[in-house]
Structures are given as C-alpha cells and as structure tokens.
Amino acid sequence: MQITLYDTPEHQTLRDQVARFLAREVEPHADKWEEQGFVPREVLRRMGQAGLFGLMYESEYGGAEADALTNLVFAEALSQSTYAGFIITVLVHTDMASPHLHHAGSAAQKEKYLRKVIAGETITAVGITEPGAGSDVAGIRTTARRDGDHWVLNGTKMFITNGVHADLYFVAAKSGPGKREVSMFIVEKGTPGFSVGRALKKTGWLSSDTAELVFDNVRIPAANLLGEEGKGFYSVMKNFQTERIALAAMAVGHCTRALDLTLDYVRQRQAFGGPLWDQQVIRQRLSMLDAKTRAARQFLYHCAWRVTQGHDIVQDVSMLKALTGELVNEVVSACQQFHGGMGYIRETAIERLWRDARVLAIGGGATEVMLEEVAKRY
C-alpha cells in the first residue's frame, strides 16, 4: 500500500484490522457467496462487532466519531478484496444507506435503530433508483401521501443493493407537487404492502443481492419521515458525495489489487524464452497504469480531506467518480489481457475483477452524468 499525504498511524492500524478480517472471514468463503448470491448475515454481524460499521457515527450509539479520511481508509482497505459483491454489500450499509439516518434522523429514530445498524444486527438499504430515475432524483415517481398519522407509499424501486436481505430501508418518494419535493422515509422489512418484486441477476457483484422493490399502499407511521418533509432531494444529493467517494475508493482499490496480481503473474509466466516481464511493452504499460492509479489515489484522499475541511466538493467528487470509474476499467482490462487465456477463466481473481469493475462507471452516477456535473460548475 502506497503512503498518502494524509496518512496517520491510526489509519494503518485500521488497514491492518480490515486485512485480517478479509483473510480470516472473507477470502476463504466468498466463492460460495458468489454462488448463493448474498453475503451471510453472521459475517456482517462480525464486522459490526469488530467496530467497522460505525466509524463516523456518534459514540453514544457505538460509533467511533472518526472523520471522512478514516472512513475512506476503511473503504479502500476493504476494496483490496477481489470479491466486489461482498464489498458493495458492506459499503451500501456503511456509506450509502445508513448515513441518511446519521445525518437526518431524529433522536428518537437514532435511539430506535442506530445501535443495531452499527452492531451489524440491522442491515440497511437505500431506495432511490427507479426504472425511469437514477441520478435524476427529481424524476422519482414513487409517491408518499399523508393520511392522518400515516404516510402511504406507492411505487417501484430498481437496482437496490441489499434489497432482498436488508432489514431497514431509507426510501425516497415524491411528497408534493414540486419537481424537487421529495421526502425520505424509514420502511421496515415486513411492512404490509412492501415486497421484493424480484431478485435481479447481474453480470458482476455476484455475492451482493440486488432487487426490485414494490410499494403497494404501504402505510408507515408519520414518525417514519426521515428529516424535513419535502427536503429529501437535498439530503440525497448531499449523500451522493459520500457514496461517490466510497465507489471511487472501491475503484482505486481494485486498480491496486489488479496491478499487484498482474505483476506477480507476468514475472512468473514463461513465454518467448523468458518471463513476460521481459517484454518491454508489458513493463511500460503496467508502469503507466500504476502511475495513473497512484495519481487517482492522491486525488481521492484530497477529496476526502476537503470534506473534513468543510469545502464544497461536488465538482471535485464528480471529477473523481468519472475518473476512477473509467480508470478501473482501463486498468483491469489491461491486466486481464496480460493474463492471456487464464484471464477469461471464472476461477481466477482477475476475471472476477474484470466483471465487477464494469459497473463502477455506471452505478452511483454514470461517467457522462458526472462530467455534466463538473461542466455546469465552471
């Protein structure tokens, strides 16, 4: 692992802790999870018990009150695994879903839910994306209608990670006539009218469950409104920055891991009278890809540092997401190429990384959407 400008001894301790957890709890078992399509709950509970699910949350609920840099260290260390389905299962819980409760939840809501979220006893998902609305949050069609002491939700959500096996869902819905009049709601699993429409089959991220969610006259207590009524659009947009930094960390972690695997392979693989490393074109290509990865990593850490300083980071993070989403596909594709035929065999880590990398230029904001976010801020 290369050192960054912002590293501390505590960061290295966290990296070591995550590496031990991956070696003990994940790598020996994750092939089975790829086949079954989800990560066992007991593994997630052990992560919570290890203190890895509440790094940025309040200590009174079991959190560590760490900063955005520490949270980034966790995401990047986690992404040294070659099982991205496991990684995204965790990062959706820690960086994409539960932050809505952390940022907007009332004292009563946090008292009710946050301890179990941090302990890994309650796993979370976030319901924003719909068949016709992804990054375009204003295009959400799921509705929330006030009815006395309840809200009634109707609509469909799509591509929801942890959608099948989560316990607690943070759901965005139109709560008024305005284009951006969106509110966030807490929906518990098992609420009448709330169901998983179907589990979705994907090309990659095989050990993460992904679902279509259906809300058919789902009645929830008025107390389950998360944050201010009609202000959910801004809550979602704010949390997109945390989500995109986490995805960028995932991309950079995959680049680093793919390069390490490929350097080992080309030094051992014999061809044309010697190791592949003796071929100048391979040495130079890997060197350039490593240079790009190291540069992206420094930008990643700089963005997280700017969060700790309270800066407006939307343009920077949009650049970062676009850059790393494209870079991980460039790096992993080249690394797979240098593995030759073995790079196309399902049992190899590089083939899994290649499949899993593709969605990082799509999910959490496609490259084209990110570049528009950059351009309109010049």
Rank of each mutant, 00 (worst) to 15 (best):
Val374Ser: 00
Lys32Ile: 14
Val218Leu: 06
Arg352Trp: 10
Lys189Val: 07
Leu300Lys: 03
Glu76Asp: 11
Asn329Cys: 15
Gly127Ser: 15
Glu347Gly: 02
Ile88Val: 15
Asp7Asn: 14
Val218Gly: 06
Glu10Ser: 11
Gly197Gln: 10
Thr4Asn: 07
Asp278Gln: 13
Asn71Trp: 08
Ala138Tyr: 11
Ala322Arg: 02
Ala258Asn: 09
His311Pro: 03
Gly134Ser: 07
Thr142Asp: 01
Leu69Ala: 05
Leu101Lys: 04
Tyr113Met: 01
Gln49Ser: 14
Val117Asn: 08
Ile282Leu: 10
Ala125Arg: 03
Glu188Ala: 15
Pro177Lys: 11
Val182His: 06
Leu55Ile: 10
Asp264Lys: 07
Arg41Ile: 09
Met56Gly: 13
Leu153Ser: 07
Leu286Tyr: 00
Arg198Leu: 08
Leu371Thr: 00
Leu286His: 04
Gln36Pro: 03
Leu22Met: 09
Val236Asp: 00
Tyr265Asn: 02
Ala166Phe: 07
Val126Ser: 02
His100Asp: 11
Ser318Arg: 05
Tyr61Glu: 00
Arg46Met: 04
Val26Asn: 02
Ala246His: 09
Val187Asp: 11
Asp136Glu: 14
Pro131Met: 00
Ala64Phe: 04
Met1Thr: 13
Leu286Cys: 02
Phe159His: 14
Ala375His: 00
Thr242Asp: 10
Thr293Ser: 11
Asp167Ile: 04
Thr70Pro: 04
Ser287Tyr: 01
Ala375Asp: 07
Ile160Cys: 13
Gln109His: 02
Tyr113Leu: 05
Asp7Glu: 15
Glu60His: 01
Met47Lys: 02
Arg294Lys: 08
Cys335Gln: 01
Val252His: 11
Phe194Glu: 10
Leu44Glu: 09
Leu206Phe: 07
Ala77Gly: 12
Thr4Leu: 00
Asn162Thr: 15
Val164Gln: 08
Ala19Val: 00
Phe170Thr: 10
Ala251Met: 01
Trp205Leu: 15
Ser175Cys: 13
Arg257Asn: 10
Asn217Glu: 12
Leu300Met: 12
Leu55His: 07
Met288Leu: 14
Arg146Thr: 06
Arg141His: 13
Trp151Gln: 05
Val171Gln: 10
Thr203Tyr: 09
Glu229Ile: 06
Ser79Lys: 08
Pro9Gln: 05
Asp290Met: 06
His339Pro: 05
Arg294Phe: 09
Thr324Trp: 08
Gly204Asp: 07
Val331Glu: 10
Ser175Asp: 13
Ala107His: 12
Ile313Gln: 01
Thr161Phe: 02
Gln298Gly: 09
Leu371Arg: 05
Gly253Pro: 11
Glu181Val: 00
Tyr169Met: 03
Glu212Phe: 10
Ala108Gln: 14
Ile345Val: 15
Arg269Ala: 06
Gly364Glu: 06
Glu76Lys: 06
Glu243Phe: 00
Glu368Leu: 06
Trp33Thr: 08
Leu55Cys: 09
Trp305Thr: 03
Ile87Arg: 11
Ala173Thr: 07
Gln298Val: 09
Ala199His: 11
Asp316Ser: 12
Ser175Pro: 09
Gly37His: 11
